Computed example of a mutant assay.
Amino acid sequence: MIFLRKRESKPVPANDIPQRDLRFTLDDSIPRYWYRGWCHVTRFFDAFSIMFPLGEKFFIDSVKQFRDEIPTGTPLAQEVAGFIHQEATHIREHRLYNQRLAAQGAPTAELDALIARRQQNSLRNISRTTWVALTACLEHYTAILSDQLLRHPEILDGADPTMAAIWRWHAIEETEHKAVAFDVLTTFEPRPLRRYVIRCGAMLGVSVFFVIDLIYFVYRLAACDRQRANWREWWRLLAWLFVYPGIFTRVMPSWLYWFAPWFHPNRIDSRAVLANARRSLEEQS
């Protein structure tokens, strides 16, 4: 069940970042393996949820460093405010999501501690522009994965309706604010060559640890289910990621596009699919 309170009743422009108050009810009616009864694909989504609360706090903190230097009332100031609100809402909802996982026996506290250590290590002796570049990299990951969920809503066919709604909502908001961290980086590191080197280096580093951590989190969640030796489920997950619907295969060109000198998140045009997804969200709320 979804509850939505709008701050204003008029339609939100496609280039705006709305500040919603969206809440989900996660109860015992939701199956343990809520994605078609498939263990490992369910745990793939669940692994992302465990990453989000600390990850999105990291994003908020990186952008907040610049907030006082952005003139009030400017488009960037408004976008930063929307970004912070949306990410804070994601933290709240995914903490509730993760409480459900902890009740199932998932090692959420241990995995949280791993993320905290990873963040502490990454922040040692780096500039604030590098910090926001790391945020922009991870926001690119969430944006291109979200774009797939919005372009291909059939990906969530067969999922529990509440869980599907959580992921569609999250995908909408990641798409809405996908350019904010990148624009902050561009504003506060105006030298194009230096900015390009920072963001490319950040992406290469982020990608290694992101993939390693994601694989490890899925493995740990499968282990808590006593399913780590279920090779049928592992093959099903691999086929789901790389064959059909092939989410990882489909996002590869967009990931590579990051390294183009002229890259900007909004050059990946998601306006039409975002508009359709927003309408669906309004109808369901």
Score class of each variant (00 low, 15 high):
Arg5Lys: 14
Arg5Val: 13
Arg7Ile: 01
Glu8Gly: 05
Glu8Ser: 09
Ser9Asn: 15
Val12Gln: 09
Gln19Cys: 11
Gln19Trp: 03
Gln19Ser: 12
Asp21Pro: 09
Arg23Phe: 00
Arg23Ala: 04
Phe24Thr: 15
Thr25Ala: 00
Leu26Thr: 00
Ile30Tyr: 04
Arg32Asn: 06
Tyr35Ala: 10
Cys39His: 04
Val41Met: 04
Thr42Glu: 05
Phe45Val: 06
Asp46Ala: 14
Asp46Trp: 14
Ala47Tyr: 08
Phe48Leu: 14
Pro53Gln: 01
Glu56Phe: 01
Glu56Val: 01
Phe58Arg: 07
Phe59Gly: 06
Phe59Gln: 07
Asp61Thr: 05
Asp61Cys: 00
Lys64Ser: 11
Gln65Tyr: 10
Phe66Trp: 09
Phe66Ala: 01
Thr74Met: 14
Pro75Lys: 02
Val80Asn: 02
Ala81Ser: 07
Ala81Leu: 01
Ala81Ile: 00
Gln86Tyr: 02
Thr89Lys: 06
His90Pro: 02
Arg92Cys: 05
Glu93Asp: 12
Glu93Tyr: 05
His94Leu: 14
Tyr97Trp: 10
Gln104Val: 06
Gln104Asp: 07
Gln104Phe: 09
Leu111Ala: 14
Leu114His: 15
Leu114Pro: 04
Leu114Phe: 14
Gln119Cys: 06
Asn121Glu: 01
Ser122His: 11
Ser122Tyr: 09
Arg124Ile: 01
Arg124Pro: 06
Arg124Asn: 03
Arg128Glu: 10
Arg128Ala: 07
Thr130Leu: 05
Ala136His: 02
Leu138Ser: 08
Ser146Lys: 08
Asp147Thr: 11
Leu149Trp: 10
Leu150Val: 10
Arg151Met: 12
His152Tyr: 11
Asp157Cys: 03
Gly158Trp: 02
Met163Asn: 07
Ala164Thr: 03
His170Asn: 08
His177Gln: 15
His177Gly: 04
Ala179Asn: 09
Val184Cys: 00
Leu185Glu: 03
Thr186Cys: 14
Thr187Phe: 03
Phe188Pro: 04
Phe188Val: 15
Pro190Cys: 12
Pro190Trp: 00
Pro190His: 06
Arg194His: 11
Ile198Pro: 02
Arg199Lys: 11
Arg199Asn: 07
Ala202Ser: 13
Gly205Ala: 08
Ser207His: 13
Phe209His: 15
Ile212His: 07
Leu214Tyr: 03
Ile215Ala: 03
Phe217Asn: 05
Arg220Lys: 15
Leu221His: 10
Leu221Glu: 02
Ala222Tyr: 05
Ala223Asn: 03
Arg226Trp: 08
Arg226Phe: 06
Asn230Val: 09
Asn230Tyr: 10
Trp231Asp: 04
Arg232Met: 01
Arg232Val: 08
Arg232Ser: 07
Trp235Gly: 12
Ala239Trp: 12
Pro245Trp: 03
Phe248Asp: 05
Thr249Leu: 12
Thr249Pro: 03
Thr249Met: 12
Val251Asp: 04
Met252Val: 15
Pro253Met: 15
Trp255Gly: 12
Tyr257Asp: 12
Pro261Asn: 08
Phe263Ala: 04
Asn266Asp: 11
Ile268Gln: 05
Ile268Lys: 01
Ala272His: 15
Leu274His: 05
Ala275Ser: 14
Arg279Met: 09
Arg279Pro: 02
Ser280Asn: 13
Glu282Thr: 10
Glu283Val: 12
Gln284Asn: 08
